[in-house]
Amino acid sequence: MKRIYETGTEAADIKLNVDIGTAGTAFTSAYLARSGGQSSLIAQSKTVSGDIGETSIGDAQGVKSSYLVIRTTIDFSNMDQTEWQKQADLIFARYQIEGGYSGKQLYNHDLDDLNVAYGGKIVTITKAIEMK
């Protein structure tokens, strides 16, 4: 589900923080995309946690009218197949944006952000936030 964050017109720095909690192996990428196909990679997670620490995505003016797309892929290869469904239910994903007109906002992942493949072994969560 797409969410909206109002950036305002100040020159303030907009910051993103991604917290993933799962027993599976997670990898997260955050992109800033614009209509017309232009996209830039903002940050990627560095460990198996899939977390992205506080990262600047640009100033309010600069990110206005773009889309923040955060994609996390979780692989449950590290556990028994009988646990995949249960562990998919237990995924914790929280996206924090601050610095703009909307102030500090927390977003969770929604059901339609999930995509399950290979019988539940790989789960992809895609969060899209419109920067208005």
């Binding site: 909690g21 027993a23 946690s49 899939g50």
Partner: peptide, 17 residues
């Protein structure tokens, strides 16, 4: 329950850092 700080290495009993 969901666990905010859970990760694959912690699941195996190893610190991620």
């Amino acid at each position: 329950f969901r666990h905010k700080d859970m990760n694959a290495l912690k699941y195996a009993g190893i610190r991620v850092d």
